[in-house]
Each structure stands twice: as structure tokens, then as C-alpha cells.
Design a binder for these strands. Structure first.
Length: 137
DNA sequence: GCCAACGTTGGC
DNA sequence: GCCAACGTTGGC
């Protein structure tokens, strides 16, 4: 039973296009304790939405966790972790933040309740709903 | 331990 | 560019 997540990235810093080009990419730079807990809870094979924050404000793709939490090499202290993710697929239709906010079925999403959290959990129901909105079978 | 000041995130 | 949310820092 794999769990589901949502990862935020500003496209100016690291975009979905770059993720696709790189294949496997370490998800580094998380410096928030709750986000760190979520990184540590990720398991091989878990899937995560790739969300463009700030510019775009939409879910654009899906990545798969291919390496579980290990020390973030970009952290000065050893206190932070990262995971490796691989691009899996692009959503046929990006799901915008506006669409998420307008949908009562998604009102409980951590994305909406904690706007500054860069790594957040997604429930199975939310995942299925978002996939449908994104044009996946 | 409280809280004001400050910095960062991220939507608008 | 503005500002709300919220985490961190530092004086007391």
C-alpha cells in the first residue's frame, strides 16, 4: 500500500520540464520540520504530484519515489533529509490551484490548509479525484 | 518562557 | 508589489 504526496517547486528554480529531462532527481532543500517528517515517511514506489508554486500554480505531473530518505547533501548540518524521485507522467490536463479551491471534495487538502508547506500528504480519495481532474483514467 | 521583530513562502 | 501565514531569532 503506497501513500501519496504533493511536492512543490517554483518552476524558476526547478521545473517539471527539468525533472523530466533529468530522470531521477534528488529532492533537496527542504528546511521545514513537518515537511521533513513527510519526506521520512515516504516509501519506495510512493507517488507524488509535482506542483508548480508561485508561477503556474498547478499540478503538472506525477513522480515516483525511487530512493527513501537520506541526508540532504545541500544541508550544512546533517539534520535534513531528501529523497530521490523519478518523473512518471505528465498530466494530460494540469490541475490548477483555482480548480482545487473550487472543488468541495478537495477542501481538506493540506495544500490549502498549510499554504507554506512544501511537502504534504494526499489522501487516496484526493489522489483519485485529482487524477480524474487531470485527465488520467 | 514570552513575545516583538524579522525573514521566507507563496497566493493574489 | 503587496501582504497573510508562519517559522525563527533574540532581548528580557
Amino acid at each position: 500500500m503506497s501513500r501519496h504526496w504533493l511536492l512543490k517547486s517554483e518552476p524558476e528554480a526547478f521545473s517539471w520540464t527539468e525533472q523530466q529531462a533529468r530522470g531521477v532527481e534528488p529532492w533537496t532543500g527542504v528546511r521545514n520540520h513537518l515537511a521533513k517528517q513527510h519526506l521520512r515517511a515516504m516509501r519506495l514506489g510512493d507517488l507524488a504530484f509535482f506542483y508548480h508554486s508561485n508561477t503556474g500554480r498547478e499540478i503538472v505531473g506525477i513522480v515516483e519515489v525511487v530512493r527513501e530518505a537520506y541526508p540532504d547533501p545541500t544541508a550544512e548540518s546533517g539534520d535534513w533529509v531528501c529523497v530521490d524521485v523519478r518523473a512518471r507522467q505528465t498530466l494530460p490536463r494540469p490541475v490548477t490551484l483555482a480548480a482545487i479551491k473550487a472543488d468541495p471534495a478537495l477542501a481538506g487538502m493540506a495544500l490549502l490548509r498549510q499554504s507554506r508547506l512544501s511537502v504534504s500528504p494526499v489522501t487516496a480519495a484526493e489522489w483519485a479525484h485529482l487524477c480524474a481532474l487531470g485527465g488520467l483514467p
